[in-house]
Design a protein around this nucleic acid. Structure first.
Lengths: 127, 127
DNA sequence: GTGTTGTATCAGTCCACATTGAGACAGTTT
DNA sequence: AAACTGTCTCAATGTGGACTGATACAACAC
């Protein structure tokens, strides 16, 4: 009855370092702006699905729109955000000048991945 | 004067595949829910900075709060979201039972990274 | 020319979520 | 016991961003 809701979720691991607590209140805030920007782009299902679809080569807007069941104007906005971030680029298909094809910029994708890697990988793995 | 704003941003790369356009309107939508969930967690500056701070070992809430200049209750909510996702966990420091320490769950972080890797890495690199 | 298709952009609406402010609770100190 | 510190939770507010609807434009077919 005196059970607090906070105690219910308190399931800590025992870490037995019996050294002095010695608070560090002067720690510097890490710069994570690049990783946050990359993550924000991937945090939308439509944008992530676009990047996934383009892994196996270019596709035109109508193909992507049909596959994702997304309205064309919404998809166009998401494509613009990915394009502004440099992760995808337009591609001309000579035999089909009417449609707009998009392809991934693998170098930009690798760079974004590296920024997320720096955030999530173990300390020994980084650098 | 007849310059359209769309044409201004049209800077495509020349990709000379003169095969038939052959639209694929039956493409399957890729499943990106796991990667999107991981990215959504990282898409907030506070949460990303917490993960970055915990790379070099556990820290208590007040240390993180001071370093990030975040109000404690906001930080507590972000910590709860990272904890619910399994990326961090509470840690007991015996010499300092008053404070709550958090540490990264490296296995969970590696799993999240793998999901993002699957989305962003080149096709040859995946699987 | 007109009509149709494919894509982009804009204004407006809506909603998830980050923040604020207040309060509750546990552990420590006196 | 009271006072204080550290952390968590809740209700209310504010806002970025995703969606809707409409429109504009280019390329092609007629």
């Amino acid at each position: 009855m005196t059970n607090s809701p906070a105690a219910a979720t308190m399931l800590p691991t025992s870490l037995d370092l019996s050294e002095a607590p010695c608070l560090r209140l002067d720690l510097a805030a890490p710069d994570v702006t690049a990783a946050v920007s990359a993550a924000a782009l991937l945090a939308d299902p439509t944008r992530s699905a676009v990047l996934a679809m383009l892994r196996d080569g270019p596709h035109c807007v109508c193909e992507i729109s049909a596959a994702l069941h997304e309205r064309q104007n919404n998809l166009s906005m998401h494509l613009a955000r990915l394009r502004d971030a440099g992760l995808i680029r337009r591609t001309l298909i000579e035999a089909d000048a009417r449609r707009v094809y998009y392809e991934r910029d693998e170098a930009a994708c690798a760079k974004a991945l590296a920024q997320l890697f720096d955030l999530l990988a173990k300390s020994e793995s980084r650098r």
